[in-house]
Amino acid sequence: MTALPEVRTADQDAPRSLAARPAGADRTFRGIARGGGTGVLLIMTLVGGFLLYQGYRALETRGFEFVTTEAWDPNSGEFGIAAVMAGTFFIALTAITIAIPLSIGTALYISEYAPPGIQRSLIALVDLMAAIPSVVYGLWGLFLLQPVILPLSQWIATYFGWIPILSVSDFDPQDPLASPTVFTSSTFIAGIVVALMISPIASSIMREVFSQAPLGEREGALALGSTRWGMIRAVVFPFGMGGMIGGMMLGLGRALGETIAVYLIISPVFVIQPRVLEKGANSISALIALRYSEASAFEMSALMAAGLALFLVTLVVNFGASMVIARSRSGAGAEG
């Protein structure tokens, strides 16, 4: 009897594996590349590992109170990150609130409104803005913005002071001689400066995503009689939603870790102070920059623990951001 070969139908016919076993130089190359990857991974894990190792002494002493205590006095044993962590978030949230309209508007302008001739230069300018060192932004905020912004702070406090976060405790709107110094060094000013630093990054991610909105859908919307803004709302925004959220979260990650500009502007307080217009703010990175130089061994350990907390928070925010960007329909090209 003739043995017939087994008949394979289309769905059984799996593609054969073509993988070749690398040999010789290739194996060496792959080994070295893998080593490089592992080395980088090792460095990145060591960052968290060493902060934990050095900060363990402080964490062990304080236990859970490390998260709930506002004061920072490690040498008397009374310290925690409640105030600085809250301050970090207040500054970052203020910055994000300002940066959201700024970056979306800029990204929309470059991708939708700008004449094609100047688009490339605008993109380059925004990228340049992202490359300006943070200390320069700090100088600008400290020497130029702060004196100019005080009347605006005062105006907001006068007319919107009934909103709790916009109130200022020592400020009486009826007093014509009230000094504007209660408005200096506030979370608000630090937030504006940080917003200017993160807007270019967020806006370049958004611009990339906006410009990838499909041409057919755009022209379809316009052909149906939509205005340009109607087309943006119906096509560009739904398409770019993931990129918008992801870009903002990346910006938030940068805002949480910003050190020098914040350090130059704020005057540190160690209470949870949610009144953004009022003098006095704090952030973890500014605390580390402020205290590291004359820290005792134990305070250094406490600072390491605070750094670890900042590290974990930014890590979570960044993971969230890349997950949102990757999941969105438009995520493939969103490389920040």
Binding site: R34, V40, M44, V47, S285, L303, M304, F311, N318
Partner: peptide
């Protein structure tokens, strides 16, 4: 050299791009 391991390394590296610069300093200090 794509694979699960490379994907893992890529995820870690992407999360590290926004590593607060002061934490990098703190790590080397530690």
């Amino acid at each position: 050299v794509p694979g699960a391991y490379a994907r893992f390394v890529r995820t870690i590296v992407e999360a590290m791009t926004a590593l607060p610069s002061i934490v990098a300093g703190l790590f080397i200090y530690a």
